[in-house]
């Protein structure tokens, strides 16, 4: 990669890093994982930078890599997890704290399936249209609609949000 393209990438990564980490945070529910996913995504973007810039929409391209990286992380993580019949202790949200409200929402998001979570983040936080979200996720518009509908229904009945006093 030539020097100018390298500088262009550096500037792009500096500018988009916070928003991409927040996107990944919505997907992973963990800031550390989110930063790992986004760092790996930017590395992939760097490796394909000419193609990224040729795409005409580097934000969409990198966003898609973030989604894929998170999907791969999820696949990888599934293997070492052990199933148990013991439910973990769950903290009771402080009804007066904004922090707890935020954490309740993050916890509720994590209860959704990966695709529903991605649809929620892309549609309602990034602000993509159903078509754009479908392209990003590599699925049909119909799937985005149905996943969004189910995700909203799940959030409305989410235990975390109910117990957190958000109903």
């Amino acid at each position: 990669m030539d020097e100018r393209s390298g500088e262009e990438f550096r500037e792009f990564m500096h500018g988009r890093w916070p928003s991409m980490v927040r996107l990944a945070y919505g997907l992973t529910g963990d800031q550390g994982h989110a930063e790992d996913v986004v760092q790996a995504a930017f590395a992939r973007a760097y490796a394909s930078w000419p193609r990224v810039t040729r795409s005409g929409n580097p934000d969409a391209y990198v966003r898609q890599i973030v989604i894929n990286e998170n999907r791969n992380r999820f696949r990888k993580r599934r293997v070492p997890e052990r199933l148990t019949d013991q439910l973990p202790d769950r903290g009771v949200a402080d009804m007066t704290g904004r922090h707890d409200e935020r954490m309740a929402l993050i916890a509720a998001l994590q209860r959704l399936g990966p695709r529903q979570r991605a649809v929620v983040v892309l549609r309602y936080w990034v602000g993509l249209t159903e078509t754009e979200a479908a392209v990003t996720l590599g699925c049909s518009v119909g799937t985005v609609k149905s996943q969004a509908s189910r995700a909203l229904a799940a959030l409305r009945t989410s235990t975390e949000l109910v117990e957190g006093g958000l109903q």
Binding site: Y25, E35, Q39, A43, R44, Y46, H99, V121, W125
Partner: peptide, 29 residues
Amino acid sequence: LTGRLDQAFQAITPRRAPVDQAVRHGTVI
């Protein structure tokens, strides 16, 4: 929902962008 997501996500402060690490990893790829 958009407003609440925004509040939740804006509450985190990402560390400084690890540009050099991404470039190194990217060149390996």
